[in-house]
Design a protein around this nucleic acid. Sequence first.
DNA 1: TATCCTTACGGAATTCGTAAGCATG
DNA 2: CATGCTTACGAATTCCGTAAGGATA
Lengths: 316, 316
Amino acid sequence: MNFQQLRSIREAVRQKFNLTDVARALHTSQPGVSRQIRELEDELGVDLFVREGKRLTSLTEVGVLVVPIVEKMLNDADNLRRAGQEFTQKTRGRLSIAATHSQARYALPGAVKDFRRRYPHVALNLHQGSPDQVAGMLISGEADIGIATEALSLHDSLVALPCYRWTHSVIVTPGHPLLAWPTLTLERLSEHPIITYNEGFTGRLHIDRAFAKQGITPDLVLTAMDADVIKTYVELGLGVGIVASIAFDEARDQNLRAIDAGHLFAVNLTKLGIRRGSFLRGYVYDFIETFASPLKRELVERAVASAPGECVELDC
Amino acid sequence: MNFQQLRSIREAVRQKFNLTDVARALHTSQPGVSRQIRELEDELGVDLFVREGKRLTSLTEVGVLVVPIVEKMLNDADNLRRAGQEFTQKTRGRLSIAATHSQARYALPGAVKDFRRRYPHVALNLHQGSPDQVAGMLISGEADIGIATEALSLHDSLVALPCYRWTHSVIVTPGHPLLAWPTLTLERLSEHPIITYNEGFTGRLHIDRAFAKQGITPDLVLTAMDADVIKTYVELGLGVGIVASIAFDEARDQNLRAIDAGHLFAVNLTKLGIRRGSFLRGYVYDFIETFASPLKRELVERAVASAPGECVELDC
DNA sequence: TATCCTTACGGAATTCGTAAGCATG
DNA sequence: CATGCTTACGAATTCCGTAAGGATA
């Protein structure tokens, strides 16, 4: 058993069982990959992959059992390297953050700026994607921490720690009739075409639920992945926007008006996700605490060491 | 990074930093071991071992951090092999049980007999040792499961599952004055020389505590590791014995009499220990359930997957 | 001086990539 | 017939054990 074999196995799953792609990803030859996989299968005495003719098509029953262990081992290998670096170069390294647009654009800048000043020699890597992609990057090890409101709690191999709560606001053009009412209601809102987030993004679920509960079918004329796009179309007069309150900046968005909608839609909880069992560099703990001050190092350490289903104070 | 390096690291710790012994244990040459360790240290960029002159003496700060990860990886490698075997030879393999004398002698025989009949091709390996040794064998991976009343809950890398509760009995020769009293008390017991377990064995702690609580200093004329030795000396008239009730067999011990002492000493809880994160063969789950029927597979699986400190139903 | 680690060196084994072969959609 | 996996083979590398060297209790 060796690590090249394990890497081949892991990459074969990631590359959907195309060994040619695996070879490319691992910077080696295709026959080599073929051999690595075959060798480990021989050593274990079982096929890990289902072969149809010569092609690999899926994991066998054992494969399903084995692959998570393989991934754990390879992650531990990374942890080992990180543990070494933590001592050779305490203030140098890499911090890879995966976040949704909303987080990257509105929640993270402050913490990132502080972090840059404090750790000028740590290369910051900010990846943006859908909540699912954020989770995927954590699982694959591409990202060290992930920040999103959705999806992070759904995977057993991740821990999700609560960062902050937020609500939505309705965004309209100046002089819009909705501004005239003393209080905003769902009925009044539903009289206008609505522009908001795509499904699965930034609390969209809570928006749908609120309307459904009142038996209202809102007129969703446009949905987008991020608040900037939404605001653009609101400015163009296509409808009223529903965005995260944090996305409205009075100074910057002078040709728009915001109406608080915290009473209309359920409160959202943004979470910070980490792969279980990760060894985190010291500066990662610092970043996390800067971003969400209740998440002290000791708490995060316990969360990372916890098992799926287990509750670590703020967690769940 | 390769597994031989990891094995060298692990073994170096186990062999108290004597690389000559490490080489012997790993069936390789001493310069080889030296090189493996040096290579991994080079790759990580940090020394893992403190060197005084040329000798290794202890772990560095990083070493302390790294060694647990190394052990986890090597254990996962074993898990991988076991997962393979589970499919190639479901009813063949090895089951290594570590237990204290009391357990091996009185509690296990029934389960072992059933298991042998059910899995004739699984090689059973029964190791005997002190509670500490049982824990040590679990931690090192020499034993798959451990059974003891003490010590198992003390290590973070182990889970301890409760098996059964038991109390002590007082063992005397026929016609002994203690048999004349309607009820046994600590005072009456303490008027006789006492023979019982060594410290740290089979509920000895509860015996000491009970006497201490009443301000009595018992006359411990002899202590031994197991009930058979104790019974032998009771027969010889050296004193009265205090042993686990389970260790007295009316049919076999015809020249001895037992007096229940469940009301004098606290109840003991025998536990089954497993290394966290182990992949267990199917027959291991069967054995466990045969031994302690409440420990169903699903429960044990959750316990093994749990993190230190977490409570899994019957656990704690 | 015995123990224990390191360095040096040469042979053995392993590893890996290229080229050719073969199955499948 | 293009894609994708396997087999075959030779070169390069790595690995490992022996032998010699040096430090320490």
